[in-house]
Every structure is written in structure tokens, then in C-alpha cells.
């Protein structure tokens, strides 16, 4: 190996180490697509149930039992969607980390999780507090805004596309504040459509050709 090649090698090593140690690059676009699909399925059911509730409401009037039932069902549905999205996201990311021969749980994924979760837990508690006072109108916008903030905050430790997904979620959440009552639609766009679009873009950019390393 001549001297020049040796130095080029050293520079490449430096670059690789700097990137690998500061950003979690195994996040899979397929995770986003899967999460988006779960969200759309969830939104479909939620829409159905809410419609049914209002039909009954028109016929029988307000019954506390119906309302509590709907609230519980929606809560369970949201938890199921979040759980399924998380499991599939972990699966695809685990698979990709294996292909890259990188660990799934390392310094960078730890940083990514911690930084994403801080705004999201804050948002979760904030939303619970709103519900405590029966303030349901801003639940969907708050979900989107806090989720977006989480992504923007965490994006420093992963692929830069996540930053733009975060901005999109925040913008959508803020627009939603002007269209109260359409929360479910915004929710479906934010957690369903946007995830699928960004997931596809990320898959296209980084995973389509398994040989091209980003």
C-alpha cells in the first residue's frame, strides 16, 4: 500500500467513526411505512366507532355509559396502534442493523431514544392533564406537535430525514388547531400518511440498493 492510499484510508476511518459514533443509521424506512399502515387502520376503526356513537346519540341522546365505552375503546385502540407500530419498527430496524453488522442498542440508539422520548413523555402527560379537565379539542394537535418536537430533538442522532418529518408533524399539528373537530383526519395524515411517505423516501434513499452504504 503506498503512502497516499494509507492516508486516504486513515481519513475514511475518521469519517466512518465520526458518523457511526454520533448517528444511529440503522433506522429503517420500512418501520415508518409499517407504522403508517397501523395508524391508518386504527383511524379507520376510530372513525367507525365515533360515527356509530353519534348515530346512537341522535337516537337515544346522551348516555354516560356509551360515552365512557367509546372513550375506553378509543384509548385501547390508540395503545394497540402505538404498540404494534413500535414492535414492527423495532423489527425492521433490528433487521437492518443486522445487515449493517451494527448493534441495535448502542451509544447512538440510546441518545436517539432519550432525546426523542423527552418531548413525547412531556406531551403525553400534558394531554392526560387536558383530558382530566375534559379538554379534548386539542388532543390531536397536541399529539402531533409534541411528536414532531420529539422527532426534531432526536433527529440529531439519526438520519436527517427524521428532522423534516418532525417539522411536518409540528406544522400539521399547528394547522389542526384552526380546524378543531377534524382531529382524527389530521391524526390520520400525521401518523399515517406522513409516516408512509417519509418511510418510503428513506427506504428509497438508503435501502433500495443494499450495496450503497450511506
Amino acid at each position: 500500500m503506498d503512502v497516499r492510499e494509507q492516508h486516504l484510508d486513515a481519513l475514511q476511518d475518521i469519517r466512518k467513526m465520526m458518523q457511526r459514533s454520533s448517528r444511529f443509521i440503522s433506522l429503517s424506512g420500512l418501520s415508518g411505512i409499517a407504522a403508517g399502515i397501523w395508524a391508518l387502520i386504527g383511524a379507520y376503526f376510530a372513525h367507525d366507532w365515533i360515527e356509530e356513537y353519534y348515530t346512537n346519540y341522535a337516537h337515544e341522546g346522551y348516555t354516560g355509559r356509551n360515552f365512557t365505552g367509546l372513550r375506553t375503546n378509543l384509548f385501547l385502540l390508540a395503545s394497540a396502534v402505538a404498540g404494534l407500530a413500535l414492535i414492527t419498527a423495532l423489527y425492521f430496524t433490528w433487521r437492518r442493523a443486522g445487515k449493517n453488522k451494527l448493534p441495535l442498542w448502542d451509544h447512538t440508539s440510546k441518545q436517539l431514544v432519550i432525546n426523542t422520548v423527552i418531548p413525547m413523555i412531556t406531551g403525553g402527560l400534558f394531554i392526560i392533564a387536558m383530558l382530566q379537565y375534559s379538554e379534548w379539542r386539542f388532543v390531536a394537535p397536541a399529539c402531533l406537535v409534541f411528536y414532531g418536537l420529539g422527532l426534531v430533538n432526536g433527529s440529531r442522532y439519526t438520519l436527517s430525514d427524521i428532522r423534516y418529518l418532525g417539522f411536518s408533524e409540528i406544522a400539521l399539528g399547528l394547522i389542526n388547531t384552526q380546524f378543531i373537530g377534524y382531529g382524527l383526519y389530521f391524526w390520520a395524515i400525521g401518523f399515517g400518511v406522513l409516516h408512509i411517505i417519509y418511510g418510503f423516501v428513506m427506504w428509497w434513499k438508503y435501502e433500495r440498493n443494499p450495496d450503497s452504504k450511506n
Binding site: 486513515a10 476511518d13 475518521i14 469519517r15 467513526m17 465520526m18 457511526r20 459514533s21 454520533s22 448493534p103 448502542d106 451509544h107
Partner: peptide
């Protein structure tokens, strides 16, 4: 060289993480 590259982009890092990355 690897240790220095990693420390340039991370505020601080522990022994085990360094070991894993290198």
C-alpha cells in the same frame, strides 16, 4: 485515531461504548 474521531463528535463517552465501536 478512532478514539479521537469518536470524541470529536461526542461530548463524552464511556469505556464500553468506545470498546464496542472500535
Amino acid at each position: 485515531l478512532g478514539v479521537m474521531s469518536i470524541l470529536m463528535v461526542n461530548e463524552e463517552i464511556n469505556f464500553n461504548d468506545l470498546k464496542q465501536m472500535l
